[in-house]
Amino acid sequence: MPQHPFGKAQGRPLPPPEQFTAADIIHIGLGLTMIPLGVAILVRTLSIAVTVTGVLVGGAFIAFGAHRLWIAWSRYRLYRQGKREKAR
């Protein structure tokens, strides 16, 4: 069973999503925007000088974008699983 994107700490499972929502668009949109931006920040700043700002901000953008995409992917897996269970 796919683990919920927020891990075990929150413990309480949500019901599987039943449809594609605005929240999913935002998750995917944020993920797809943040990762290239993070890469651009890292590459462009590091090509000039190694600064804490460049590494920190670039890294944070990539991590955040990856997390958003992971949430979208996990929701999709929960959706598929819910659909399978319904069919059974």
């Binding site: 935002i26 931006l37 920040i41 462009r44 700043t45 090509s47 000039i48 000088a49 600064t51 700002t53």
Partner: peptide
């Protein structure tokens, strides 16, 4: 909240893509 989130994201994203000069950032940092 949604409009604000999209607007803030757009300013950051388009700012990075169209106007951002890392040399200015590094210069101000150093």
């Amino acid at each position: 909240g949604l409009v604000d989130l999209i607007m803030e994201m757009s300013v950051v994203a388009f700012g990075f893509v169209l106007a951002w000069r890392p040399e200015l950032l590094v210069q101000q940092w150093t």
